[in-house]
């Protein structure tokens, strides 16, 4: 079994790439398919990842770029994002196009663990579906969103 790093260490302002080249399995706790070239699919209705930044934490904007798995048989995907138990955002996506999920993270939502401030991000995607179950190829993973990049940007002021 592939060893999974506990946290994805992030530097605010730096765009990180899902997939084999950069993020790989770092911080990808559960609910993920294997990292591919330049992207990473979820596999199942819940996917969790753990990110860490260096304290002190300021207000940060989390942006996640990717593309929802939308077909005629599955016309929309829904994503609810939780961070350390807080409900951060909800999106209903009906266009199969590059999409940005944006949410502001308050400093008090982070948990300080020694030299790290950590946040466990839980993505709830109830409409994940196996393409082969809807006659869209042979893929047997339960897909909802193709994750391409993420970034934590400081929010001015």
């Amino acid at each position: 079994m592939t060893r999974r790093d506990s946290f994805l260490e992030c530097e605010p302002g730096v765009i990180r790439l899902f997939g084999a080249a950069d993020i790989g399995t770092k911080g990808m706790v559960s609910g993920w398919s294997g990292p591919e070239e330049g992207h990473n699919w979820n596999d199942g209705v819940e996917a969790a990842c753990a990110v860490a930044v260096k304290p002190p934490v300021t207000r940060l904007m989390l942006s996640v770029m990717g593309e929802p798995y939308v077909t005629r048989a599955r016309p929309a995907q829904e994503i609810t994002l939780y961070g350390n138990g807080y409900r951060l955002g909800f999106w209903r996506l009906s266009a199969r196009a590059e999409t940005a999920l944006l949410v502001a993270l308050e400093p008090e939502w982070w948990l300080e663990r020694g030299a790290k401030a950590v946040m466990r991000l839980m993505l709830h995607m109830p409409h994940s579906v196996r393409p082969k179950d809807i006659n869209d190829g042979q893929d047997s993973r339960e897909l909802a969103f193709c994750y391409r990049s993420m970034c934590l940007r400081p929010i001015a002021g």
Binding site: E11, V14, L17, G38
Partner: peptide
């Protein structure tokens, strides 16, 4: 002035 940063990891 720094505008944007990224990990250079695209194949």
């Amino acid at each position: 002035t720094l505008a944007i940063s990224m990990v250079a990891a695209i194949f």
